[in-house]
């Protein structure tokens, strides 16, 4: 529970991992524990969960910020960003999903690329290699989503709706997510595209098991996302 060796290195304290959290009590404990093997500072933004997600996350060693009621994942991310920005020694923020679909090795690799000065933002992409296996329909919807995002935001990405992102502080200071629900992913990309921040993509592996599939976005929701984006 206390990987002291990790904490002794000074540089780990410049990174905050932001995990939006909504009804994930089954898995969030493991997710936080795993993330903390690599990153000391984890903040879970509990978005009005009805279960014990917040307690489980806190027990696993995360700082928990609790929304008084459900606001949506976009709002949770923005809350996490503002929490991290209040830490003057924060240099990097990593966003990580609470359902366990991400790999900690990918996250470490992405922050390392920020540290190396390669770019201001590193986006995770499940389409840069063949490890992730989304179903056919999901693949098509994600492709359409990224096509729309590229078309409207002056960016060229292969996967716009990926929860793994690593962002440098100066970029984060300019970001303000106003899309409370799922359209925030495109909004984030749009704001980064509109700034002069540089970005790269990093191949990540998304695990599709029964749990992440059940918790993930249904295809129907892509219609809602599109409507939110158009009626901005």
């Amino acid at each position: 529970m206390t990987p002291k060796d990790v904490n002794d290195t000074e540089e780990v304290h410049d990174t905050w991992v932001v995990i939006p959290l909504y009804n994930e009590e089954q898995v969030i404990g493991d997710v936080v524990t795993q993330v903390r093997t690599a990153f000391a500072q984890v903040v879970c933004v509990d978005d009005g969960s009805a279960d014990r997600s917040a307690e489980v996350a806190a027990t696993a060693g995360a700082r928990v910020v609790r929304h008084p009621f459900n606001l949506g994942q976009g709002a949770a991310l923005q809350t996490g960003f503002e929490f991290a920005l209040a830490d003057p020694s924060m240099k990097y923020v990593l966003t990580f999903d609470g359902d366990g679909q991400h790999q900690i090795a990918d996250a470490v690799g992405m922050v390392a690329r920020l540290r190396g000065g390669e770019a201001d933002v590193v986006f995770g992409s499940r389409f840069l290699d063949e490890r992730s296996k989304p179903g056919f329909a999901k693949r098509m919807v994600l492709r359409a989503a990224v096509g729309y995002t590229n078309m409207t935001t002056h960016t060229r990405l292969t996967d716009a709706h990926n929860g793994l992102r690593a962002i440098r502080r100066p970029v984060l200071e300019q970001i303000e997510i106003t899309q409370n629900r799922m359209a925030h992913a495109s909004e984030l990309v749009a704001q980064i595209g509109a700034s002069d921040a540089s970005y790269v993509e990093h191949p990540v592996h998304i695990v599709y098991n029964d749990y992440t599939k059940a918790k993930g976005q249904s295809l129907w929701n892509s219609v809602n996302i599109l409507a939110d984006l158009i009626l901005r």
Binding site: R63, V65, L71, F83
Partner: peptide, 26 residues
């Protein structure tokens, strides 16, 4: 709601609450 949540959570440099970070002053 965000303001409320952040105020309630306190500053990111922890003063209390998370044991491990307490024993590791920055």
């Amino acid at each position: 709601a965000r303001r409320l949540a952040l105020d309630e959570a306190g500053p990111p440099q922890p003063t209390a609450g998370v044991p491990r970070q307490q024993e590791q002053p920055y």
